[in-house]
Design a protein around this nucleic acid. Structure first.
Lengths: 369, 369
DNA sequence: GACACACGAGGACACGTGTCCGCGTCAAGA
DNA sequence: TCTTGACGCGGACACGTGTCCTCGTGTGTC
């Protein structure tokens, strides 16, 4: 073989080589080890052994290959490698969307964990109704496990989990309610609400406005369960102590929803003195609504958010909120997931719960103002 | 071939089939078209033709395959398909991180565009110093193009762009400064600052505090250039009209940085009446700092942020800010990128600029309060 | 009953890789 | 000069797929 290192290499089929002209110079893009080996002047098998770090090779040979790789920018075809090899070292991450800050935070943390465990993350966003196709895509890419982050239609997700189980692909569902047969890590929202109510009762509050907290039963770990449990503990009857005006308005933009709900509450004679919001955005909107009605926070009304996002420290007054403990959630989630890989499938679903943490700020505590 | 549809299919090598026990029942995971074809009772080639929608097949046959796919959950191996086929229909997206909200917004928008164009996004986060390895990974996965979102070391990125060009892989760099030879879409920050200064001068302001806006020269599109240009237009000498205290504090948490910078400014006798912040977080911190010093916003001091994030509407007062026009940025970016695919490489880099938009709110306009 | 035709079977090759194995070559040491 | 390693060569097979081709078989029609 006589090769000119300056390019213009012969190919098996002389016709139609993949070339491209850059300023009169013809640059070949090497696409296979065979072609590359010809460039280096070694046998394909020898090059392959260098690339895979096999023993019994002279340092000079290894160096020669290394140098040629830098020169040509040759990269072995991952698809061929994965086709031949056993595992793909890939984990599929199915996201509801990339716009929910807390979900993206989980994604970021998870991606970091997988990376340090030498797994590649295959991140996909689920289009409505496309879950079946998405999971098929994951399986087609032979992912070694799948993570679900966000909220999905229960029935659809249940079906997907079944399919994953059928193909012996491990999975974990992060913080989703109502998927009984799935391995999952769930935030104990009930516990969080107990902490909130305890704190507010301690501050002298006896009546509570609920902002966007739906009465839908989310089971033992749901918010409602926690609120009821805590009120009962303090001897406060639920029906008399709580009030919701959710039915009066439509939830589109959370901030605006919170503002207008608060405005409605402000007109009530027997207005609650404390407000529990579904999330931080609604809570902040509510603060604006209450303040616009001339009420002082926390003097006239206390407000509590949920998620403890960065914004909570940026409002006036700063917002008491509940921290999801995302770091811990992801740590446990990864543990559950990686623990399944290479193991026989479990008959019973793994269920782990995470305890949230109440972060008290000015919106509920006058002493902090 | 005599097959029992209930499972337990024969394999080429009878030894060590990949099985898993689920409640006494043995479930086989079908991993190849050949195996699947045997299950269906058709030839492998026939199944392949069904899967690829080739003509000349009886409806009954197609249905038989479809049914069997639902039963077994069989998915063809994407790696084998990609190995054989021409293109991978994959685009690599290189992110600085997944924690910067504006960057993630761009990612989300880009992913949507690619999806509708039938491209799969391969999202990866760049670890410091790992850019070389990351691009090799992309090339190994035979991506058809690469997008960079975020801020990267200039020299490193320049090198990567060169490598991509060498392998004839299209690219686009979203909103990055100082990469002269890269195809890029850049926000015209200068233009944005001109709008801001015009607006503030219009409101009667003549002195400006700069919060975190570095004097590093970012060229014609940089913030500083715009500020100087606008001041000159209004006959205001830059040195006398602007003031920066960035050197007094260390920037760690943006909110806190803004707060403490504002606190320092508040002690000055000849305090500026308007403040321009590097981003919304710093601006909000500054508002807190100024308010804590007893100053009224916008009465005693005006504050302007950058990015126009959702938070801007949630502060008191609401924050005037500059919108990056992310939708437009991504639209143009995708256009630049997809336009390169399948075309011969360009000699000259494509440079597109995006005009930001000033969003005026209460923090600079007393009439809106 | 003979013929045409539609459809599926199955062999073959290619894609780019990892890996095994027998063989040739070259240099060092006896 | 002969022996002995060390090391690289190159053929072979496998991975799972798409696609082309030839051949057989079944079905329907006259």
């Amino acid at each position: 073989m006589h090769l000119t290192p300056s390019g213009c290499l012969p190919t098996k089929h002389a016709a139609a080589p993949r070339t491209l002209a850059v300023k009169k110079k013809t640059v070949r893009v090497i696409t296979s080890t065979a072609e590359f080996a010809r460039y280096v002047g070694l046998a394909r098998t020898t090059v392959s052994r260098v690339l895979n770090g096999q023993p019994g090779l002279k340092a000079k040979t290894i160096d020669r290959v290394q140098r040629a790789m830098d020169e040509t920018g040759f990269t072995p075809n991952a698809y061929a490698i994965r086709l031949k090899g056993k595992g793909t070292a890939t984990i599929g991450i199915c996201m509801e969307d990339l716009l929910t800050p807390t979900a993206v935070k989980k994604l970021a943390a998870l991606q970091r964990v997988f990376r340090t465990a030498h797994y590649t993350s295959l991140i996909e966003v689920l289009e409505p109704g496309g879950s079946r196709q998405l999971i098929r895509h994951f399986l087609s890419m032979r992912v070694e496990a799948v993570v679900f982050i966000g909220h999905f239609p229960v029935e659809e997700l249940t079906q997907r989990i079944a399919e994953l189980n059928a193909s012996a692909t491990p999975h974990v569902v992060i913080d989703h309610v109502g998927i009984p047969n799935a391995h999952s890590v769930t935030l104990d929202r009930a516990h969080g609400m107990v902490d909130v109510v305890d704190h507010l009762v301690d501050q002298g509050h006896r009546t509570f406005g609920l902002l966007g907290i739906s009465a839908r039963l989310h089971g033992r770990l749901g918010r409602m369960h926690g609120i009821m449990q805590a009120l009962e503990k303090h001897g406060l009857p639920f029906a008399q102590s709580t009030r919701s005006l959710d039915h009066l308005h439509v939830r589109e933009n959370d901030f605006e929803y919170g503002r207008i709900l608060a405005a409605s509450f402000a007109t009530l004679k027997d207005r609650p003195t404390a407000f529990l919001a579904l999330n931080d955005e609604i809570a902040i909107g509510a603060m604006h609504g209450l303040q616009a009605a001339g009420l002082d926070i926390p003097g006239d009304a206390a407000v509590v958010g949920f998620n403890n996002q960065e914004i909570c420290a940026m409002t006036r007054p700063t917002l008491t909120s509940i921290d999801q403990q995302i770091g811990e959630t992801i740590r446990v989630g990864a543990e559950v997931l990686l623990g399944q890989i290479g193991q026989p499938p479990r008959a019973k679903p793994i269920l782990r719960t995470i305890e949230p943490r109440l972060i008290v700020r000015q919106s509920t505590d006058p002493k902090l103002a």
